[in-house]
Design a protein around this nucleic acid. Sequence first.
DNA 1: ACCTGAACACCGTTCAAGT
DNA 2: ACCTGAACACCGTTCAAGT
Lengths: 191, 191
Amino acid sequence: MSSERVRNPKGQGAQLREELLDAADALLVETGDEAAVSLRAVARAAGVSPPAVYLHFDGKEELVGAVVARRFRQLEAHIRAATAGIDNPGRSFRAGIDAYCDWAEAEPGGYRLLFSVPVGNDDHQAGAAAFATLVDGLAALHVADPPRVAALVWAGLHGLLTLRQARPAFPWRPLAEQVDDLLARLVPEQA
Amino acid sequence: MSSERVRNPKGQGAQLREELLDAADALLVETGDEAAVSLRAVARAAGVSPPAVYLHFDGKEELVGAVVARRFRQLEAHIRAATAGIDNPGRSFRAGIDAYCDWAEAEPGGYRLLFSVPVGNDDHQAGAAAFATLVDGLAALHVADPPRVAALVWAGLHGLLTLRQARPAFPWRPLAEQVDDLLARLVPEQA
DNA sequence: ACCTGAACACCGTTCAAGT
DNA sequence: ACCTGAACACCGTTCAAGT
């Protein structure tokens, strides 16, 4: 049960860092809750002793923060990939919205995690970049005051996604229908 | 440091139950996070030993659940009190919305708690009752398909309130202004 | 009927030590 | 340079026992 893992050679400490991030990511996404994942469990999954985590992270909080930052970058890349090459502004805008929702629904725990943890500077950068894609999409539709409307759209989507997760017993309509309803009212220009 | 508390007489076990609920509520509202509050800390605050909690609750989860149920009933009462006696449907509707937002902003941890924990049946009842006040308000405004619009309004408000808490560094406009914007678009009938 | 003490298997973190 | 073992103060929960 102990020491399956082979020791890293001299210059390769960075490899353990990646293994720890992968292990922590997998455990965090399962639950979407920082508190449900223990630093000791992450160390176990990576095949090292608990103190080894401190060689690469200041503590549990910094480890979780690094996972969150990586997930934010993935989300932004996912949205950019979905909208890339779509010329029609309305269709591009909607493709970005759908990518955001798909990503949240595909890994609910991973989405919840993004907003359940105090953000560091890295996350703030990545989050701001994702928000910027939304503002750009609205500007292309000639919406008045795009940042102002973008905040409402973001809040509406986030509210729908998180409430649907938190209250699965509520008689929700299909998500696509709710998103249609929401956008029809918040962004009439996109029709 | 030990035994400040006087033992309860024979038929008064229910009193400890209330003391535990009050202690747990205070600790939970401070953090808004179930995981940040320990059963042992609750027992300490109430002046009893940890196993004493099990005399009244099945475990930590049930204790937290009872606190959440109580908070839901308080929220619904707060909304009903704010709308009671207002005849004008538009003003009554808006008073309910404002009461919801005020309650969430007055105790952010208490609001977060309501949706950060899996719900039991009690919470579901209380939550449904609060939602019903929203549906009724929209019906009085002769909105088409009130439950459908109510879901969007609820999601929009919830998204605004939680994102503002989770991302305090974001350049938010004042909440009242965002709520005005949101309602103007989602419920044009209220103007 | 109401509550405690001691125990168990966990947890995050620190620090000295091993290779 | 990279990692471990042992320790510390915590945690939720159980079970026998005290008043």
